[in-house]
């Protein structure tokens, strides 16, 4: 399997008044296509920073991030945006749906931004993905008329409707109860297995880790553990966490 993302010796500094805070210290990470990877770590460990760099919403201070063959720090803002639109899907901790748009419109939004897709095709793809996440009865609803789980399903549908290479999820279950969280995870896992879409999560939730095929543990801005391959180390890591 070829790598979708390669993180090579990445550092990331943030200015904090007169000081500079280093959030990542020479991180190395390689994620292959079709992986269902979780980045685990306590708050402030740097996992969100790492996710931002992988998600091309930020560029590293040192080292490089190569996404699908492109070095992100060499791309312009416009190119990065285009890359996110076409190859990436985002699932946010607090769903981040556009409140004034209906479920259908929220999911249709990335397709509209991409442009060049006719109405019928957009309708087919939006309805199909909403059907898969079990929301075909809620097309006309507004986000505030839905439960937290339903909203996250809308967000998943929005992330997947463009058929991205990689889906990034930042603590996707943090704002959900355990039952709902589980069903969301099951859904993502299912989509991963059926379509081969690569998923990377940040989380400190055991259930997420249990489902992951690989756990990358981050602490104080460094990768301290990278459990890949068979299920046992992952499970062990999850148990240890």
């Amino acid at each position: 399997m070829s790598a979708i993302i390669e993180v090579r010796g990445v550092t990331k500094d943030y200015p904090l008044g007169q000081l500079t805070v280093r959030a990542l210290h020479g991180v190395e990470l390689c994620v292959d296509r079709g992986e269902f990877t979780t980045i685990a770590g306590p708050s402030g460990s740097g996992k969100t920073t790492l996710l931002n760099l992988i998600g091309c919403v930020d560029v590293p201070t040192g080292g490089s991030v190569v996404f699908d063959g492109a070095v992100t720090s060499s791309l312009s803002d416009r190119e990065l945006t285009r890359l996110r639109l076409e190859k990436l899907g985002f699932i946010f901790q607090s769903f981040n749906l556009v409140q004034v748009l209906s479920v259908f419109q929220n999911v249709e939004l990335p397709l509209l931004l991409q442009g060049g897709i006719d109405v019928a095709e957009r309708k087919r793809r939006v309805e199909s993905i909403l059907d898969r996440v079990g929301l075909s009865r809620f097309l006309r609803h507004r986000p505030n008329e839905l439960s937290g789980g339903q909203r996250q399903r809308v967000a998943i549908a929005r992330a997947l409707v463009t058929k991205p290479r990689l889906v990034l999820a930042d603590e996707p279950t943090a704002n959900l109860d355990s039952v709902t969280g589980n069903s969301i995870l099951e859904l993502m896992k299912e989509l991963n297995q059926q379509d081969g879409t690569t998923f990377i999560f940040s989380t400190h939730d055991h259930r997420v880790m249990e489902l992951a095929s690989r756990i990358v543990r981050v602490q104080d801005g460094r990768v301290v553990e990278d459990g890949r391959g068979d299920k046992s180390p992952v499970a062990a890591a999850a148990a240890a966490y």
């Binding site: 998600g55 996110r84 899907g89 985002f90 946010f92 981040n96 556009v98 931004l113 991409q114």
Partner: peptide
């Protein structure tokens, strides 16, 4: 700001 950030993240140009 969050709304604009989201739109930018999911691929809306400036």
């Amino acid at each position: 700001v969050a709304e604009f950030g989201t739109l930018r993240a999911i691929g809306a140009q400036r």
